[in-house]
């Protein structure tokens, strides 16, 4: 089984080193690749200096395009499992082997690391939690399935979904939308409880200013995703 950790990185100079060390120590069976999405800080220089495995995008594609690059790479290189993993210190690599195990045992096509099953660790701000709960509700209405953490950036997929996501993946805020797409197509999605940390350096891609656009765009995209099939 070939397994790849995909780490989308936009200005993550301050956090990447720790993230890579975490993966090497706690998930040694996994290869990793950093996707540098035209960072304006020293992310690229640092990847070169440390000899990290990285893909350097020639133009800025945003989070969706960056993650898709990782899926494409994984697919072309014959990986069986690919997992998206944030480079900002929010995620712990020690969960990865367990996620792969759950994926195999439950025959899932996607395993999502969820903060909201055991409700331990960093739970995000209350405003964001309201948004996340709304997405959970919307997914339930659209697909009848319960996904407690639809915005989680810690998601493992198998080769079948890798192929699918290589062909088509949302450009921005891809997580909730793509979950609706694959649930609509009767793929199997399970969740695993994880503990996440508050991000290290840097800012979330979703600020309050973008929040309204985010909610409208993602809601609309989810409904369209459901209608497509």
């Amino acid at each position: 089984m070939k397994k790849l950790v995909i780490i989308p990185a936009f200005n993550e100079e301050g956090n990447l080193e720790k993230t890579i060390r975490d993966i090497k120590e706690n998930a040694p069976a996994f290869d990793y690749v950093i996707i540098n999405d035209c960072s304006t800080d020293g992310t690229l220089a640092m990847c070169r200096r440390h000899g990290f495995s990285y893909l350097n995008l020639p133009v800025n594609l945003g989070i969706g395009g960056a993650v898709q690059t990782g899926y494409r790479y994984a697919y072309y290189h014959g990986y069986d499992i690919a997992v998206q993993f944030d480079g900002d210190g929010q995620h712990s690599a020690s969960y990865l082997p367990e996620m792969a195990k759950q994926m195999e045992e439950t025959e899932s096509d996607m395993v999502i690391g969820s903060r909201f099953i055991t409700k331990e660790g960093f739970q995000s701000s209350s405003l964001r939690r309201v948004g996340i709960r709304y997405f959970t509700l919307l997914i339930r209405i659209l697909t009848g399935k319960k996904i407690t953490d639809p915005t989680s950036g810690m998601r493992m997929i198998n080769r079948k979904l890798m192929e699918k996501f290589t062909e088509e993946y949302p450009k921005d805020y891809p997580e909730p939308e793509s979950v609706v797409t694959i649930l609509s197509e009767k793929h199997r999605v399970t969740e695993m409880p994880v503990i996440m940390h508050e991000r290290g350096e840097g800012n979330s891609s979703i600020s309050l200013r973008n929040g309204v656009y985010y909610m409208v765009k993602v809601s609309f995209a989810m409904v369209i995703a459901r209608m497509k099939r």
């Binding site: 690749v33 996707i35 495995s53 990285y54 893909l55 350097n56 995008l57 020639p58 133009v59 594609l61 395009g65 898709q68 690059t69 494409r72 790479y73 072309y76 450009k171």
Partner: peptide, 17 residues
């Protein structure tokens, strides 16, 4: 066009690596 640019960029990044 944006879709095409996206795909090409990804291919370039992968080929380079």
């Amino acid at each position: 066009l944006a879709d095409k640019v996206r795909k090409l960029s990804q291919e370039i990044a992968i080929i380079r690596k």
